[in-house]
Amino acid sequence: MIAFIARSSVQKIVTLFFVSIVSFLIIHLAPGQPSQVDPLNPKFTPEMVARYRQAFHLDQPLYTQYLYFYRDLFTGKTVSWKDNRSVLAKIWERFLKSLPLFIVGTILTWTISFPIGIRSAIARGSAFDQTTTFCAYLLISIPGFFFAYILIIFVVQTFQVPVIGMQTFGLNQSSVTAAVMDRIWHLLLPSVLGATGGIAVLSRYVRSQMLEVESQDYVRTARAKGLPAEQVHYRHALRNALLPFVTMFGLILPGLIGGSVIIESIFSWPGIGRMAYEAILARDYPVILTVNFVSAVLVLGGTFVSDVLYLLVDPRIRL
């Protein structure tokens, strides 16, 4: 057990080192010399390159650049070019703003996709299965922002509520209930949109896991014991089908960061995805590079958590 965790952490730390190198090397995709500025690339002007060179110590040898990059990052010296605030502090602040979206989206995803996936696996080939399968494909295939616009138009026209932003502007004087309702309306749509893709993918995955398990010999054994169908499905099959999903718990958070860029942009939600997008628009390179690094680190942490969780639930892995 401890050996497993130790091995896993060593492995993750080695990976982290390489992740840090890759995140750092992204800097070098941009032109490093003013003479290299491509007149076709409007994103870079010679002045910009000069500032860029200075901020990332591009005059130094490669390994010094690397050390400077992470020293500056962790000591708060890496500052946003827009407002000169420490990048890490900025990210943390925006992350907290995104948190309600993450939480509601995750709850929606997991509570909706599991019942759907399990039911369609048990009633394989039924009308319910076929409908949910097709809907899942539809949701996977629709461009996210197109779907968002359709939903916004639908909600705004049907319920007459504003949905853009975190709250309606200038609503400070109104009653508490109105303010709370306003918040909920604003929270609901982006969360639902954030969850739809997840629901589609996850319910398909649950279904295929469940089907896989239902065809196992031990499910037949359970039926041969004369157990009622519910007990066969929900005790014997489901317990096994759930195992791989434990590992997905660790990946919820990082997964949402990558996916939030478009949705937060559409809804003007002042979260981490929106911040990253604004940074890209404003060529705020310290922020862009840091977001990449931070999300990679989160993924890495997530996989570590998953490994440990799997260890706890699968009796076959006892070390």
Partner: peptide, 14 residues
């Protein structure tokens, strides 16, 4: 009652 062919896979691992 029934006894199956594959004792390896016929018992539920969890």
């Amino acid at each position: 009652a029934m006894v199956f062919q594959e004792p390896l896979t016929s018992l539920n691992p969890v």
